Amino acid sequence: MRTHVLGEPGPWRRPDAPITSRIAYAAAHVVPRLTADSTPGAPADLDWDVTMAYRHELWSYGLGVADAMDTAQRGMGLDWTATRELIARSGREAAAVGGRLACGAGTDQLPPGAHGLTAITDAYREQIEVVRDAGAQVILMASRALASIARTPEDYLSVYGALLAEADRPVILHWLGEMFDPALAGYWGSTDIGWATDTFRELIETHADKVDGVKVSLLDAGHEIALRRALPAGVRLYTGDDFNYPDLILGDEAGHSDALLGIFAAIYPAASTALQALDAGDATRAHEILSATQELGRHIFAAPTYYYKTGIAFLSWLNGHQSGFTMVNGLTSGRSVGHLSELFVLADRAGLLADPDLAATRMRSYLAVNGVDG
């Protein structure tokens, strides 16, 4: 046990004009009803008012919202019925405030078991239609069903090629690494990152007019920079690297990454203020702000990385955006008391506890219920 003296919130501010230097999405989490059955395997039962309010908070800071992604517990408790409603509701809310919205389309409505390429392609089509009907941009998510039966790179090129050929507007391709989802090991037809990248690039180059950008979540800055430099003109790289985002977003003489990040859902006031500084031509200040959040980001996304959602929900609770520390699928147990205690300290050091007194009160109650007496 040790005493931690809280600091003050950072000098964050909402923008008074659209952010223009980078396109930036925060991948938002979901909040269940307090009395919902959130035991593992139970259907998701969301508090729609609270879940939507968090998206409005992100939009108010000038960020886009990436919804129905892994941060929203796709594949970790958010079933397709709840996902479909989430996409529709977010679409309506985005339209009401003019907020940027992109949503994940995958194949998770398929029942367990092996499915052929045609069935997988059709499942993608069903979800793409839901996203388009909501007025959101389509993010083609990685598919566990495809990863389980694909045997060659051509299997991936066949499915994705058909979907891109049918796209009525450019989409975002998402390459999610196995550290986020072990079921996606060997995606693009190889466990060798170089061979997998060759297949990924072939797909992009063949359909460059249908690809707005690619979100790469491999936590490998060197690989991302090399891929970014090799992309066809007009295709963006949306970093999904929650470890190395400051340098990747600021970029170098050969370009920069835009952002589609789970960590932005946790650090959004700082992220927005940094991008506003970048808009004003102060790259040094922008880098200073983002770098000050990096230790927190690396902690939240520490291995096992797929439990990072627990940290984002915990920080949301500390900051008063939800009245209970609850998560779909019982995922509140995904991190230890020690991990979440360190998160509290790092969030404070980064100036990301909006109301330190409230955060301290909630932190004490969390420790007490877990048998830790100060």
Rank of each mutant, 00 (worst) to 15 (best):
A26D: 09
P269I: 10
R125Y: 05
H299M: 10
S217N: 03
H4F: 04
G62N: 04
R169I: 01
I87S: 07
A42G: 02
T71P: 12
L86C: 14
A259D: 13
L290N: 08
R2V: 04
V337A: 10
Q294V: 02
A26F: 09
R2D: 12
G371R: 15
A277T: 01
Y187G: 03
L110F: 13
S217R: 03
A123R: 05
R14I: 01
A102H: 00
Y307F: 07
L101R: 03
S316K: 05
A233V: 02
E126A: 15
R151A: 13
L260H: 11
L275K: 00
F200Q: 09
D279I: 06
G297K: 05
L346C: 13
H287W: 06
M179I: 11
R298L: 07
P246V: 05
A142T: 14
L163R: 07
L157Y: 08
A277W: 01
L203K: 12
P246F: 07
E166T: 05
T239C: 09
G113H: 08
M141W: 02
D108Y: 14
W12P: 03
E129T: 11
L315D: 01
A230V: 01
P9A: 09
L86H: 14
A270N: 03
E57Q: 02
V235P: 10
T107H: 06
G374L: 14
Y306G: 01
D49Y: 08
G213E: 05
A230D: 12
G64E: 01
A68H: 09
E8Q: 15
G186Q: 06
G106C: 09
A94N: 09
F264R: 03
L184R: 06
A183I: 04
S90R: 09
G106L: 08
K309E: 14
A368K: 13
L146M: 06
Y238Q: 14
A208I: 00
V369A: 14
D355Q: 05
G62I: 03
Y156I: 04
S333W: 00
H256C: 01
P112F: 15
P40C: 05
T361M: 11
R132K: 05
D220T: 04
L58R: 04
Q322Y: 04
S341V: 03
L176R: 02
A183L: 14
A196G: 15
A221E: 15
L46V: 11
D348T: 15
H256W: 07
G297I: 08
H115L: 04
D348S: 13
R14P: 00
R132T: 10
E57Y: 00
S217L: 06
S148Y: 02
G255K: 14
S291N: 07
L250S: 02
A142W: 00
I204Q: 06
D16L: 11
I225S: 10
A196D: 12
Y245S: 11
E253K: 12
R201L: 15
L34M: 06
P32K: 05
K309F: 06
S336I: 08
A26P: 10
L296N: 05
F180V: 01
A24V: 14
H174T: 01
D279M: 06
S291I: 03
G334A: 05
T35I: 05
L117F: 14
P40I: 00
I193V: 11
T39V: 07
E166M: 04
R33H: 03
I289E: 09
R55D: 01
A313N: 14
